[in-house]
Design a binder for these strands. Sequence first.
DNA 1: GATGAATGAGATTTCATTCAT
DNA 2: TATGAATGAAATCTCATTCAT
Lengths: 199, 199, 199, 199
Amino acid sequence: MSRKSAILAAATDLFAEKGFNETCTAEIAARAGVAQGTLFYHFKSKEGMLLEVFADVMGAYLHGQEQALQGAGDGRAALEEMLRFHFRFLQDNSRHLLVLIRDFPCHLLREDGPRRSQVREQLLAMIALLRTCLERGAHDGSLRVKDAHTTALLLRGLLSGLTRQQLLSPLDVPDLGEEAVAFCLEALRPDGLPAPLAP
Amino acid sequence: MSRKSAILAAATDLFAEKGFNETCTAEIAARAGVAQGTLFYHFKSKEGMLLEVFADVMGAYLHGQEQALQGAGDGRAALEEMLRFHFRFLQDNSRHLLVLIRDFPCHLLREDGPRRSQVREQLLAMIALLRTCLERGAHDGSLRVKDAHTTALLLRGLLSGLTRQQLLSPLDVPDLGEEAVAFCLEALRPDGLPAPLAP
Amino acid sequence: MSRKSAILAAATDLFAEKGFNETCTAEIAARAGVAQGTLFYHFKSKEGMLLEVFADVMGAYLHGQEQALQGAGDGRAALEEMLRFHFRFLQDNSRHLLVLIRDFPCHLLREDGPRRSQVREQLLAMIALLRTCLERGAHDGSLRVKDAHTTALLLRGLLSGLTRQQLLSPLDVPDLGEEAVAFCLEALRPDGLPAPLAP
Amino acid sequence: MSRKSAILAAATDLFAEKGFNETCTAEIAARAGVAQGTLFYHFKSKEGMLLEVFADVMGAYLHGQEQALQGAGDGRAALEEMLRFHFRFLQDNSRHLLVLIRDFPCHLLREDGPRRSQVREQLLAMIALLRTCLERGAHDGSLRVKDAHTTALLLRGLLSGLTRQQLLSPLDVPDLGEEAVAFCLEALRPDGLPAPLAP
DNA sequence: GATGAATGAGATTTCATTCAT
DNA sequence: TATGAATGAAATCTCATTCAT
């Protein structure tokens, strides 16, 4: 593993574990097994590391969501796939996902810059993916959706809120994946379609 | 206004505006119009200020939710009231709510201490309120709820996620209050109950 | 001596001795006998210290020059006083003067700021003083001056160049004060006026 | 152009533009179009680059002054040539001259070393040139000079001070070349010689 | 109760220089 | 001859907190 990826891995771990602010660059360097200066040879700044970590994790997540969307049948099935993928990703990569939701670099995105716009685009891409899925369902009658964009935002809020609660809550929160999937599908169920039998 | 409440007000504003880490105590003192030392006469530490700000805002929020719960008729109506109260609070007190969701003191709550347990209890109280509401609906048949605790957690996750998205997203997010209320009610609608007419 | 003036004194010494860039803040703190943080309690930045040191020394210098100008008789005598004062100041306060000419904060003055404009004004004040003196001499016939402003600039360049050479040259340079005074007076001697006898 | 001269050219530009301390080696390498390591293959250190840049510029300057001195008639004419050459050089090569006067490596010259003594010798050569000129004038009666060495130092101080003021002053300083030449010639004019007519 | 000067530990970042290739 | 990744020492500055008054 190259030094740069060692740094990236160390930063990902630490940002997830302790948060961006509480992680100091000396710690990242130590965990990556490189000198402090090496960090700044490979990245412009600590913030630059976060942005790159961010883009990487988001890239993997988006890739998975795209595949979930493509593989599925009707809109409802696609949505189910996407929701399930989210919670699977949460289980398998909780460390990585934590970076996304812990220090989502809100303030970083207000200003501009190449990395920044990349992250913003990824965020929009996720919403677009959800919208595509919802529009398909609206079209084929498998989902009841009034406004696809609004509903996409609603779903994204729900997913990120649940994930945040799961990973960061001081309370012990059980895995709400199945419940959440059922909740969403039910909320978007067309009138004619009967509720699925409980498992 | 006493010095202590001036400090609290200043801290609330700044924590909401810039976040806990980015706010320095000198700034709080300046905005409150007191000396830096005065901060530490009234509070044990900067973290202590956050905890108190937190408890205050959460107290007001909980108070409102309790009233919403008590005033309403059946479980479904009560839930609707609670959800609507949340988004009204978000509109009227976005600054304050921002403190709750921006720096939700996750790491602060892991350790113990008197203030810390207060905050944890408030968090539990909110979930209990939602559960009460859901149980009432389950009992009177106005809501379809399998497990009240799980659903309460789900609703809390949804609310906090949407609020976070609303207040912190780098994207322009419209007010999703109405959509969210409809979404939740629909998800919990009993089979027999017809969907409400669109407005 | 207050801590702030101790810092100022230490900074003056070190800036004169080693130059601004080669002096580190830890050294200033050590020599002033204060903690490093104290520097930044009293000054915004290291550059802020330089600016203040600068303004102080320049203030003392200007004060002396003003007195030299006021006390003298005709323009020629006034100029002589001013030139002599410069070289006396150079002898008595070489440490302080060194700060002025070593790190004359050229680049600092391009941008703006309250301190910066103070320094710029002091610089202009010095030139104005020289011009006043030259104009007086032009008026009373004791000096031959074509353009007072230009000549003032020329004299300032000469003085600072000589001072710089004196204090910073790697060569051993003798005190050129007397020579310089004679040189300047001779250069500005009106046609009618006989050259003074050599001492 | 060889790599080494590309480096030298880049260093000259940057040292003149931003000063020695504010120029970093990475920048020099980038502007020269070579790798950072290459800098240290050709030069012992960053300081070594400055010394070489210095010697080069000083060499060109001295060469011009020598020619000015040789080509002229009596001492007075020679001095005039030399002074004029200085200001012409200042106009044509302000970038290069800036290196000489901006970071005149005072502290560098205190210690020893082969390059260092070269620079010191060049400095002495310049003074010697001026002295030669003054002595010629003293001898042929075209200049009134009491002590040639002292006056040479005085002229050098004047020239470098004016140049510094011209190139680095935060104030807008007009070209003082003509004034300076006149000023010096007048200061050294023998009693019998009438002042030249104003142009 | 209130102050604000002082602290010192620690954070990020810079940069000349080295060295294996 | 040339490279460029890597270094680590050092520098400036921040900031929560303390304490004598």
